[in-house]
């Protein structure tokens, strides 16, 4: 293989891509999606319990809660209501007409957070003699992000893997339409060099997007080396997807249609991982994106282990190998390099 030719293919694809509005959109879309997740989906900050307490209760329950949670103070009950209506889990404490206090919920809070908040209030209600005799230590039982945040993270990262491949697809479609592939056919360029050179962009974009996405979304505690391994393996999904779309699409219009269908097929298993019971997930094993989503899910929830990740990336490689074995003979016939 000639390194010179591989780099030329990559450079040519890159220059072509940044001069194509649609591909530029594919390049910036994951960044925009990461911003959406950052600003509209609750993240880690939601893991800590947050209370809104009326100013008058500051010396009593307010001071007590400050030991265990984030506490904000408000002038009156209506200010607490306004704050509770925001997207995150937030619990209000206000004085009630009988002199006690009211525990105010919006209704859509995470059950686990409700239990913790309830426990804290019960603890506060315990007579001080009993309370003082107890030695309470708060320990984290492992962070679990709100489901929406986990889905948001996986969606952004997977989209960046797949969009990397789509740049390959649209460069291939353009070559088909302009017949430049024929001109490459009569040069010393080999099929392997074309595939490797073209795949660099399919790796380059996801790596940049994955790290940029994590930074933008603000998720903490993610093992960046694990992210790199998952990205390197998962980018193959995008690359194979890109080559497949490029191979079956005869023009840009056709390519967009195939892209939509392909994205739907690949993204549905990732969503289903959250809703199907574990036993039924065997039906998703065929999809490389399922394995990738599982790896990312454990990663973002800071529960990923090397052994577990090895099984997940093996799943990606195995399912992709089957796809590649099916596609390669037809692909070779088309390119004839």
């Amino acid at each position: 293989m000639s390194i010179k030719r591989i780099i030329s293919i990559f450079r040519n694809d890159f220059v072509n891509s940044i001069r194509d509005k649609m591909i530029v959109y594919l390049m910036i879309a994951p960044v925009l999606l990461a911003l959406v997740v950052r600003f509209f989906i609750p993240g880690y900050e939601n893991i800590s319990i947050k209370f809104g307490v009326e100013e008058s209760l500051k010396p009593s329950i307010g001071a007590f809660l400050e030991n265990y949670a984030d506490v904000e103070y408000f002038e009156n009950r209506s200010e607490i209501y306004n704050r509770i209506e925001q997207y995150d889990d937030f619990f209000g404490i206000s004085t009630s007409s009988d002199g006690n206090f009211d525990f105010i919920l919006q209704g859509n809070e995470n059950e686990r957070n409700i239990e913790i908040a309830d426990g804290l209030l019960n603890y506060y209600s315990t007579p001080s003699v009993v309370r003082d005799s107890l030695d309470i230590e708060i320990k984290s039982s492992g962070k679990t992000l709100p489901i929406l945040a986990t889905i948001g993270f996986i969606f952004v990262i997977l989209v960046s893997y797949l969009f990397g491949g789509l740049t390959i697809a649209f460069n291939m479609i353009e070559e088909k339409e302009s017949e430049t592939l024929k001109a490459l056919d009569v040069t010393p360029l080999k099929l392997s060099e074309l595939v490797v050179g073209r795949s660099i962009l399919g790796y380059f974009m996801p790596i940049v997007h994955a790290y940029l996405g994590v930074l933008i979304m603000g998720f903490e505690g993610i093992n960046m080396f694990m992210l790199l391994i998952i990205t390197l393996v998962s980018s193959l999904i995008g690359i194979v997807f890109g080559f497949a779309i490029g191979f079956i699409s005869s023009n840009q219009f056709n390519g967009i249609t195939n892209m939509k269908i392909g994205l739907l097929i690949l993204m549905i298993p990732t969503i289903l991982t959250f809703f199907l019971p574990k036993g039924a997930q065997i039906f998703l094993y065929w999809a490389p994106t399922y394995w990738s989503a599982m790896a990312l899910k454990d990663l973002v929830n800071v529960q990923q282990r090397w052994g577990n990740m090895f099984i997940q990336i093996s799943g990606i490689i195995l399912t992709l190998t089957i796809f590649i074995l099916i596609l390669t003979p037809r692909f070779k016939r088309t390119l004839k390099l």
């Binding site: 072509n16 194509d20 017949e179």
Partner: peptide
């Protein structure tokens, strides 16, 4: 090889 169709990269 010079092809009948002008098969070139239009964006380059």
């Amino acid at each position: 090889v010079s092809f009948e169709q002008p098969n070139i990269y239009g964006k380059l």
